[in-house]
Design a protein around this nucleic acid. Structure first.
Lengths: 112, 112
DNA sequence: AATGTATACATAATTTTCTAATGCATCAAA
DNA sequence: TTTGATGCATTAGAAAATTATGTATACATT
C-alpha cells in the first residue's frame, strides 16, 4: 500500500457515499467499513476522519445522533437532504475524475 | 471543474507517465499537454509543477537538459533509468487506486 | 492482577501538496 | 505599444492529510 497519498482529497466523497448506502454510521464503523471494502488498501486515520465528519456536519451535510451502547458513546451520522444532493454531485465529480485519470495514465484502455 | 482537489497526490505520477510517452518535455509543455489531454479539466499550476519537477530531479528520477530556443530558455526533462522503474511502480499503484476507488464509489460497475 | 487488543471519541503538531499571487524575461501580433 | 502567449521560478497561504497523543470502556489472555 504505497498509494495512500492518491486518496488525498477523496475522503469527503467516500464518507458521503458510505452514508448514502448505509443510512447511518458512526466514525469507527466508517474506518472499519472502508478497510474492509478496500481490502486494507485504504486505512482512514482518526486525525483525518473526525475533522472531516465535523466539517461535513458544520456544512449542514450531515446530522448527528448520539447513542449510548452499554457504557460507550457513539455518534451516528446521517445525510441531511442537502447532504444527499451534495453526495450526488461529488459522486459525479469522482466518476469524471476517474475517467479522466484513466484516460491520462492509460489512453489505450480508456473507460470511454 | 470543481474536482481539482481530487488530483491531489497524483501529479508526480502524471508527470512521469507523460515523460514515459514523450521521451522529453519541458515544463510549460507539460502544463499544455495535460490541459489538452484532460480537455481543460486539470490545469497544472506553476507553483505545483516546478517544485514537483525539481523534487523528481533531486530524487534521481529525472535528468535535465537545458536548451536555448531563440533567446528563450527551456529545460527539458527526461526519465532516468531509475525514473523508468519508478514510473512503472507508480502507474501500477495508480491502476490499483483507480480500481479500488471505482469499487468504493460504484460497486456495481467495478472495473474488475 | 496485569497486559494487550479492540472499540470509540477527540485534538495538536507537523508535513505534504496544492492554489493564488507575484516576478522576470522573450516574442508575436494587433 | 501593449496585449497575450511562452517560459522559467518563488513565496505566502490554505487544505487536507499523517503522526502522535489523550481519554475511556470492554474483553480476552497470561
Amino acid at each position: 500500500m504505497g498509494n495512500q497519498k492518491l486518496f488525498k482529497g477523496s475522503l469527503q466523497t467516500i464518507i458521503l457515499k458510505l452514508l448514502e448506502s448505509n443510512d447511518k454510521m458512526y466514525g469507527y464503523e466508517i474506518t472499519q467499513k472502508v478497510k474492509e471494502l478496500t481490502k486494507g488498501e485504504l486505512k482512514i486515520t482518526e486525525g483525518a476522519l473526525y475533522p472531516a465528519l465535523h466539517k461535513l456536519e458544520a456544512d449542514g451535510l450531515l446530522d448527528v445522533e448520539v447513542a449510548k451502547v452499554g457504557n460507550r458513546l457513539r455518534k451516528y451520522y446521517k445525510l441531511t437532504e442537502s447532504g444527499s444532493k451534495e453526495t450526488a454531485n461529488k459522486l459525479a465529480e469522482m466518476q469524471e475524475f476517474l475517467k479522466t485519470m484513466q484516460h491520462l495514465v492509460n489512453p489505450k484502455f480508456s473507460l470511454e
